[in-house]
Structures are given as structure tokens and as C-alpha cells.
Design a protein around this nucleic acid. Structure first.
Lengths: 207, 207
DNA sequence: AATTGTGAACCTCTTCACAGCT
DNA sequence: AGCTGTGAAGAGGTTCACAATT
């Protein structure tokens, strides 16, 4: 399959959310122009993004909201639940356990890991905190497919290395560091300081 | 000033972090090639990014780590502390209050807001939770420059609208929705579900 | 009449490659 | 000799504009 850009994929996610909202409002049909307007982009962009995957609209009419959301769900792989491991039960980690948005989209945290002896064995929301050294056993048992890395920067690479060795191929990394992985493994970064620093830059510019 | 791309700005943030790590290791000189290697990019990219702002290296030698970090700090506006308001004291919000990384970079949370009567008046880490309706008074008193939006999607636009009316011009938005703002206001999004959905897409593709 | 789907044009970002400096 | 700084080339992403369809 042809290579689709990261931007297209992340815009599909926003279309998915837009469609969900429209469906909640009882709206059955929507044009690329309306989807674009809601998301501050152009209608050509919306149509082009969708065109990589098929023809989902009707000329003159637009798109059926439910049908289009269904198509995007298929594209993004949201028709199944994904089993997630959360590594690092600190502030960020604990917030993510309670993050409704993940569960709503079918991302279910099924395993917790930490390396702090004081935490291991305890439970949060019915989930036992496991020793990261037991990662391979637990991830296999629980069928984990994606790991969220919420450990300090200095430990992040080692944690990912060992999970890659267990066969995990997708990571959401909250540590402020670039993680190295083999080419068949995907890492997405969630680096909150970077965005704040961009704001700092723009504010500094405009003064 | 010429328009610098978002990607360049966010890479500058990563160079800043890379340089901090090198300095901690006592390394005094670094080449664009080494910075690139650490961050999985090309050395031409590193040099081009820096070239938009000046000439900070010595041909044949590379860059002085401390001097370059200083330059990047100036560019990104990190030579001062930024006063931040956090709106929405839920799971995510509370995690951010304790997030050391922000404080370390000079982003100091100085005001908390919520609209839940049960929370207003209480304190977290010595910070009083204020009524979002008092936003203008409090943001002015505390000299707030950036707001972090950690409220449910359905309230996010209204919260931002009222803070824009108070004069806030920079937002870090955690709500999974596109916020509309005037052109002199900047919004950066931190949408964790989007990144997970991208992982879901890549895993789905490769199976 | 309205709106999609898409090749072509356009624009922006990245990489190349080398002159210039240390 | 080694590495930066940068114009030019190349790649990739976005927008235009219009034929096709309902």
C-alpha cells in the first residue's frame, strides 16, 4: 500500500471525532466543506485525505455521517479494542489510567508496570502493578499490543528496548527524549514541554 | 521576521534538551552530525534549522554546547519564567500540576481554575482553585500569559473564549476538539487519542 | 445546483553538495 | 582535514480548479 502521511492519519482522527459529534447531534449528512470549517482546514484537504482510501461521498450531496465514521474507524483500526500496557505509575501514568477518552476509543489499559518495589504488587482500579522485569510474561498473557511509556527520560530507552524484545511494536512515549527502535516498530511522542516551548516562542516573537 | 515552520521550532526544543543532556555529561563541543544522530534526523536539517536564527558554530569544530543551548533558550523565549493558568482540575490537570518537566523549563503554574463548586476554594499544592468566572481578575493579578485547557471537550471553546477576552494569547489544549481563536492567539494541541489512533492505524496496516 | 474526486499547479520543507572557514 | 552555512535540487504535502455525478 502507498505511504500515507502522518498528517493525513491524524486528520482522519479529527474527522472521526467531528463525525461522532455530528452523529450525536442527529445530523445525517455532511459536506467536506462543513467538516473543513469545523476543523479550520480546507475542503480540498478533507476530500484528498479521504480519497487515499476510497470514495465515500455522493456528488452533489456530501457524506453520510454514520457511514463515513464507520469507514474511518475501519481505516484507523478502531473496530477492535486494543490492549494497552502502561509503564510508569507516576503522576502522568495515574492520570492516564483514569482517562475516559482512551477507553471510549477502545484503548483499554490492561497491564501496569513500574520498577519501584514500593508500588509493585499494589492495585490501581483493579489492575495490579507488575514488575517491569516480568514484562514479557505479562504482556504475552494479557495480549498487549501497545505500550504507553510514562517513566523518567533516563529510563525510557531501556524500558522500550525490553518491551521491543518482548514483541511490542507500538509505543506512545511521554518521556522527553528521542527513543530508538527498529524500523518495524512505531513510536509516537507526546511531549508536552515541546508544545509549551512553541507557545513561548510565539509569545516572544510577537512582543 | 520571516515565518519559521512549526517543525523547526519543535526541533529546536529537542536540540535544547539534547544539549542539556550533553552538558550534564560534561561534553563541551558537539557537531551537527552528533545532534542529528541522537534525534534520528539528518545533520543538514540541524544546520538549516539553526541557520534561520544565526551562525552559532565554528567550521571544522562544531558547536559549543553551553553557548548553543543559550542561543536556543533565547530563541524559544526560555530566558524568563512563564506564568501559567491551569483550567480544569481533573485527572489530567492534577497530573500537570505535579509535572516536574514544566517547572524545570520555567513554566510555572500560578493559577488554577475550575467551575465545579465543590472544588472552588480548595487548595492543591498551595494553589487555590478559583472560579473560572473570575478568570479576568485572577489572570491579571497573577500576570498569566499562557493557559492550559484541561476541561471536557464540550466546555473547552467557551473557556478559551472567555480567557481570550481577558487577554490571554497562548493556549495548550488537551481537549479533543479544534478550538477557534482570533489570528493573534496561538493554540497548541495535545491530543493523546490522536497519537494512539495513529499507532492503531500502523498496527492495522502491518497485519 | 450542489458537491465529490482528482490531476496539475503550487508551495513548503528536507536533503544534497560544496564553497568557505577554522 | 573537518565541519559549518547555504543556495539549489528534490521530495512531499496542500490547494486549485474543474470534470463527473447525483
Amino acid at each position: 500500500m502507498k505511504k500515507i502521511s502522518d498528517s493525513t492519519i491524524s486528520r482522519l482522527s479529527t474527522y472521526y471525532r467531528t463525525l461522532s459529534n455530528l452523529i450525536d447531534q442527529g445530523i445525517e449528512t455532511v459536506s467536506s466543506d462543513e467538516i473543513a470549517e469545523i476543523n479550520n482546514i480546507t475542503s480540498a484537504q478533507v476530500r484528498k485525505d479521504l480519497s487515499f482510501f476510497g470514495s465515500f461521498g455522493k456528488r452533489g450531496l456530501g457524506y453520510n455521517t454514520k457511514a463515513l465514521r464507520e469507514e474511518i474507524a475501519k481505516i484507523l483500526g478502531l473496530k477492535k479494542e486494543w490492549n494497552i500496557a502502561l509503564v510508569g505509575v507516576g503522576n502522568i501514568g495515574r492520570a492516564l489510567i483514569d482517562y475516559e477518552e482512551f477507553r471510549k476509543q477502545g484503548f483499554i489499559i490492561k497491564a501496569l508496570f513500574d520498577k519501584d518495589r514500593k508500588k509493585i504488587g499494589k492495585e490501581i482500579k483493579g489492575l495490579r502493578i507488575n514488575d517491569i522485569d516480568d514484562a514479557c510474561y505479562v504482556t504475552k498473557e494479557k495480549n498487549i499490543e501497545i505500550a504507553i511509556i510514562a517513566v523518567p527520560a533516563k529510563n525510557a530507552q531501556a524500558v522500550v528496548d525490553s518491551l521491543v524484545a518482548c514483541g511490542i511494536r507500538a509505543f506512545l512515549n511521554f518521556a522527553p527524549i528521542t527513543i530508538k527502535v527498529p524500523s518495524n516498530v512505531t513510536v509516537k511522542n507526546e511531549n508536552m514541554s515541546i508544545e509549551l516551548e512553541a507557545l513561548s516562542y510565539y509569545l516572544t516573537q510577537s512582543n
